[in-house]
Amino acid sequence: MRYDVEVAGRTRHLAVTRTGDTFAVTLDGRPYHVDAALIDAQTLSLVVDTVSRQSYETTLITDPVTGQLTVTVAGVAVPVALNGQRRFGRRDEGGGTGAAPQRLAASMPGKVVRVLVKTGDVVHARQPLVVVEAMKMENEMRASRDGMVAEVHAREGHSVEAGALLLVIQ
């Protein structure tokens, strides 16, 4: 079977043929013999001839919120996409350059403690905009660019989910 796997921004082409417990894999034309043992639903122990029978423990997890697929190899988490399927994780500080508006979103669930600006305010890069409390710490969310506050969605005292839009800077 053929798969396209995107790793670190590069699409890799793979073909997999199974023979019992071993797999003949070609990765961008290079052949590998892979011995695979299923440890649990997400964990594979692989013995691969990358050099000479190298042993790797890998886990494959789908983030329940963002849908992002992540493979952990030797303790290194590598985001991947399979056959072009991936939903990107949401970030707290979008924008940053040019004229694109900054859409400030909550990066984690928490409570809005303070909203430091109002619609129409002129703000500067790095200026604190909203204070969100999560896990006992107050986190100042800052402007990533100079601009004007176009929309304020955050309300003091309200709880927000991860990804909730707090405000927009034009």
Partner: peptide, 9 residues
């Protein structure tokens, strides 16, 4: 490479 192989398998 191994991440890609694990995903495909």
């Amino acid at each position: 490479d191994v991440a890609a192989i694990a995903t495909a398998i």
